[in-house]
Design a protein around this nucleic acid. Structure first.
Lengths: 306, 306
DNA sequence: GGATTTCTCTGACCTGAGTCAACTATCGTG
DNA sequence: CACGATAGTTGACTCAGGTCAGAGAAATCC
């Protein structure tokens, strides 16, 4: 199928789905309440700081204030003072509000159920699977992997999230001080972002001429199953290779089973432990195909329009 | 997977796709022009009767008038008199309007292309295929097959559309007078509708006690590939069986190759020609499993919750 | 302890997207 | 040829969904 034809098919699908979604919401959701307040009811959850709500929904402070006021007038929400910050306020659903939200939820659920009509169980399963594929591929398409200054806030934040996760997964915990300091990176740190939201990272740093160590390869929980780990790993290898690295090694922890499977699948071979990090229980190494080679993996990044 | 879980997954996908579509249109489409006029620009095509536009878009007459006025003010559209009807008017794009529309189109196309990011050709193909599956299944889910009075307008219209198509496909043409008259239906006519739009029909009528003829099985061009023909055929058989029919026969034309394949696939066997219709070049028959039999096809319609 | 910043509220204002009723011009039909 | 139906225009109005500036209270910085 031609690329142009693909684009047209995708556009046709988008038109169709726009209409489909419109029918779903039109017929069932905005029964009497306009969309804004209904959405807000959802987003408040049980209680939420106004500033969080503003940030999450991208609302104007004045508009949010007014929306909350109408919800308060209908006795669905009570807005009270923030326990810790006298300036801030907190919105909480009342009992009525919770019922209203449950009702909205139920209507939305029923709308979907109705739209499923008389599909057989098989067809429903096929639908769910196809939607999952679309979802996965579009998330993947919206993900950008790019180099980042290891000292940048985003970079540090992603490493901290990584550290938090390791602390939870390692039986012995994890000391954040073990994280590579920005100044110690003699190589490249890559950040994976989806709609300006960080969902993964990784870095390589030179150990000796031609040899690098790969560290802190991490994929956020909400981004797993997209094949992002593989992409990050490949990007790190390509970047390292482009900087004259011919061998990459890394150490990992026995608790990180998916990571170990990822490395094995990418052609990493077990080696003797080479580092003194207490968390590196296993070590792997891979010899990279150098950029000069024809058809090598690093060569791809330079060729276009093939 | 449980049914509830499926529904939740579908809702999650809908939320995701809503956001996805929002990003697409927000970033690229409504550059300066609000949505209404832009949509109108699309729908006018090159020229269109105002009444058609109103019907297609479901717009208020006053609102359409005003929308067109703003487009006229921007020199994108010229509204002139209708050649045949002095009351009606016709909107036509100007050269500028055509350029503007092409521009919108291009922006939308680019938005989609950008959103595809760096997917490989394989991944793009997978995406398109998965979207096609979602599309097909949701259309199928939104399609209702129900009995209809053969004299009702919708029923007559669908038969006329069927006749028009036959006239185009048969080398010898097709005489609409050959269509079964409403009064001649001693059986059931079924209509397939998608969002109140007729997309198919078919009927059976008694030839002799226990024997029926199946006629005018038709699926509109825009609904082909959904498996609707098979569903209609099965519904007709089930309905006939429920009315004591044990054998169904039908005649068809050699030009209708898909129909012939459909009948063969559904277990119809060739028989000698039995009718005097000049269009029935081939004849088929199928013995129905009677409702009394356990596990028979007609038995299904009565059992619930199995 | 004063200046500055942060968080929210309020009033004034705006735009898009319509609806509704009254009116005019034409058409088809008996 | 009169009458009702159809096609379109216009003015008055509504509602959702926002933006913006300013004010007041609390927190934070220096």
């Amino acid at each position: 199928m031609g690329r142009v034809d693909e684009i047209e098919r995708i556009r046709a699908f988008n038109r169709f789905y726009t209409q489909h979604l419109g029918l779903l919401t039109d017929r069932y959701l905005d029964q009497d309440r306009p969309l804004g307040p209904a959405r807000l009811l959802y987003e408040i959850g049980d209680r939420a700081d106004l500033r969080d709500l503003r940030a999450r929904l991208g609302l104007d402070a004045g508009y949010l204030s007014r929306l909350l006021r109408t919800l308060e007038d209908h006795n669905l929400v009570r807005v009270g003072p923030h326990p810790a910050d006298g300036r801030a306020r907190v919105a909480a659903l009342t009992e009525t509000g919770r019922r209203e939200r449950a009702d909205l939820d139920e209507r939305s659920r029923r709308a979907v159920t109705d739209a499923l009509g008389n599909l057989t169980a098989e067809q429903r399963a096929e639908l769910v699977a196809a939607q999952a594929t679309v979802h996965r591929l579009l998330r993947l398409a919206g993900t950008v992997i790019a180099p980042v200054d290891p000292a940048a806030t985003q970079a540090r934040t992603s490493l901290l999230r990584y550290a938090v996760e390791l602390a939870e997964r390692f039986p012995e915990g994890y000391d954040p001080a073990t994280l590579t300091a920005p100044g110690d990176v003699d190589g490249t740190m890559l950040l994976a972002t989806e709609n300006d939201h960080t969902i993964g990272c990784g870095l390589w740093t030179r150990l000796a001429p031609g040899t690098a160590e790969l560290r802190h390869l991490w994929v956020a929980a909400e981004a797993r199953g997209l094949g992002l780990g593989r992409r990050l790993l490949a990007a790190l290898e390509a970047d390292a290779a482009a900087h004259g690295i011919t061998a990459v090694r890394l150490g990992t922890h026995a608790a990180l089973t998916e990571a170990i499977a990822l490395y094995r699948g990418a052609g990493y071979l077990p080696i003797d432990d080479y580092s003194d990090s207490p968390y590196n229980q296993l070590a792997f190494e891979k010899v990279l195909i150098t950029p000069g080679w024809r058809g090598g993996s690093a060569g791809r990044s330079g060729s276009r329009g093939t």
